[in-house]
Design a protein around this nucleic acid. Structure first.
Length: 472
RNA sequence: GCGGGUAUCGUCUAGCGGCUAAGACAUCGGUUUGUGGUACCGAGAAUCUGGGUUCGAUUCCCAGUACUCGCCCCA
């Protein structure tokens, strides 16, 4: 929790020394204390916004991975992993200068070799780069790629927000048909509902293609220009840099102004209009819960036509965002590839975990050891490692506490772990090549030879399973 | 980047301007020699850092830092 203070270090050190040396050592350390700089201290916590995923949380993550693996298979997505570090330009050019992600949230640094690189703030750019680099355009379309991994954004941590977080990303390249847009939204829905998350809602919008968007943006700028006085400071700047994001502003006065602003859906070109209309028809057909949000813009500038986000509403009416995405029909050529219409979305795995916890989602439970191996004496200790390995080979998960000496304390641990069987090897058993098999439920035990051990253990475990089933 | 709240053993909490900072859970050890659950005994373990007020600060004040919540933004 708190950083390791000098005082604590000293205390820690003196504790381990014998009494005589304490005084001199402490005296010797004193001058060091003043000179010790912050850099030399070991912080007992990771940098801000980083955190550990402890064993207790792993079942949630495993569950998500399992669901993702299954659904990506079902929908024909092949897994791809790209580096966490790419050339900074890849992101600057794709996500776009003027976006918050690029302007203030990217981890950018120079390598010793002088390359300007960046920790990835999202997955799509790297995947697009790999698509081009490896000539995936020769594959039958659409090329569907799935990826998960950490992404990094240097912003201020708060609930559900970390500087290192994990995203799952689905991208489909080379198909412009809106049915793919619908399929991806369906896929996202499948993932989220499979995790036991309820009250899901999609927000969808179309922000047009570069052609119609340009006309629309002119209209929008003209409109906001006329109401400039009523906008917040930020939005006044956005008017120059990224006018569409004014629609996204949460400031009351800006919301006021933008309710009557021209909406992108009303100014789409024929092609974009048809695309959006078809998408909505597909969504209706799929009976997916969505609403059209004409103010949905998204923070990455490579999007065209369809954009969407996934929300869930909790009992208090608070909305939780799990992810979003959209179409990016011009990104591939922007990155130097051939024209390739594409669509993708990302899910925040951390937020899925949080939501699963919140709704107490059922999940796969890790198998726990049902057998404990106890040993007594030096000879038995030596033998026990082999017995342990033998049990693993036969698929029997076994716990142990080899470091402990007394049988009593080992049995206590066995009990705490809730195992059904404890195997005991003592001096006598080690010599006889036998093991005591103790049934922890009934308390009865028998001595069996090594050759019969696996059988004896399996028999008891099998019987117990039957019992627990009949109890249900 | 801006605002609010918080900071005591590993965890959760108590406490008071004053003697040795209390408890619970957890951990480790023990309650005689090779047998668990309960019980009993014991051990280790904390006042975020730096200033100030004061005879004296864990307590009050200020700053820093961290955490946290909200804004911005996003997943």
């Amino acid at each position: 929790m708190a950083q390791l203070s000098v005082k604590k270090v000293k205390k820690e050190l003196t504790k381990k020394m014998d009494k005589k040396t304490v005084k001199t050592q402490v005296a010797a350390r004193k001058p060091l204390k003043a000179k010790q700089s912050v850099e030399e201290e070991i912080m007992l916590q990771p940098p801000r916004g980083m955190r550990d995923l402890l064993p207790g949380d792993q079942p949630y993550w495993d569950q998500i991975r399992r669901v993702l693996a299954r659904i990506s298979l079902e929908y024909g997505f092949g897994r791809i992993d790209t580096p966490a570090i790419e050339y900074a330009n890849l992101f600057i050019r794709s996500i776009g200068a003027g976006t918050d992600i690029v302007d203030k949230e990217m981890y950018i640094f120079n390598t010793k070799g002088g390359d300007k690189v960046s920790l990835r703030p999202e997955l799509t750019a790297g995947i697009g780069r790999a698509y081009i680099q490896h000539g995936m355009n020769v594959l039958p379309k659409p090329v569907k790629l799935f990826s998960t991994g950490p992404v990094y954004r240097y912003d201020r941590p708060q609930e559900g927000r970390y500087r290192e977080h994990f995203q799952a990303n689905f991208d489909a390249f080379g198909e412009q048909d809106p049915i793919l847009d619908a399929q991806l939204i369906q896929l996202a829905h499948r993932v989220v509902t499979s995790l036991g998350i309820k009250n899901i809602q999609f927000q969808v919008n179309s922000i047009g293609c570069p052609k119609c968007r340009k006309e629309y943006q002119n209209l929008l700028v003209a409109y906001f220009e006329s109401k400039k006085q009523k906008l917040c400071q930020n939005c006044k700047k956005r008017l120059e840099t990224n006018p569409m994001r004014i629609l996204d502003c949460k400031e009351d006065k800006c919301v006021q102004v933008s309710t009557t602003a021209p909406q992108s859906v009303d100014h789409l070109c024929m092609e974009c209009r048809v695309h959006f209309k078809s998408l909505l028809e597909y969504l209706d057909e799929l009976d997916l819960p969505y609403i059209i949000n004409p103010r949905l813009v998204r923070g990455l500038s490579y999007y065209t036509k369809t954009v969407f986000e996934i929300w869930s509403n909790d009992e208090e009416g608070k909305r939780h965002s799990f992810g979003g995405g959209g179409r990016y029909d011009y990104l591939m050529e922007q990155l130097g590839g051939e024209h390739t219409p594409a669509i993708g979305f990302g899910l925040g795995m951390d937020r899925l975990v949080a939501e699963m916890k919140r709704v107490h989602a059922k999940m796969y439970i890790e198998p726990k050891p049902r057998v404990f191996l106890a040993q007594l004496g030096d000879l038995a200790k030596k033998k026990s490692l082999n017995v342990f390995a033998e049990l693993q080979k036969n698929g029997i998960l076994t716990a142990e506490s080899f470091g402990r000496g007394s049988l009593k304390s080992q049995l206590r641990v066995a009990d705490r772990l809730g195992v059904e069987i404890t195997l005991i090897i003592g001096q006598k058993e080690a010599l006889d090549k036998t093991v005591i098999v103790k049934d922890m439920v009934s308390g009865t035990q028998e001595t069996v030879g090594h050759d019969r051990l696996i059988l004896a253990v399996k028999k008891i475990l099998k019987n117990n399973v039957v019992i627990s089933h009949s109890e249900e």
